[in-house]
Amino acid sequence: MLNIALVLGFILVSGACFLSLVRLLIGPDLPDRILALDTLYVNSIALLILFGITEGSTLYFESALLIAVMGFVGTLALSKYLLRGDIME
């Protein structure tokens, strides 16, 4: 039961990653691309957690937390750059 759910989860989340990647490539404007990158971060956190359940290891939580923090800071810095033309004034 759990194995089937894990395989299904991997397939669906990988499809989500692919869809975000397409939007990252075709996105007509800069905010579209930043939003696609942010979605890609969130999807990769889900993929890492699923991989951690598969391996039965708690080692991957630290990297997932790091991706969450760095993704948030990156999104904030990029939108601040679009707003002001400068990150820190």
């Binding site: 669906l12 989340v13 989500a16 869809l19 939007r23 999807n43």
Partner: peptide, 10 residues
Amino acid sequence: FTLLGSLSLL
């Protein structure tokens, strides 16, 4: 839900 979010993004 993750797939639906990315689908709406596309």
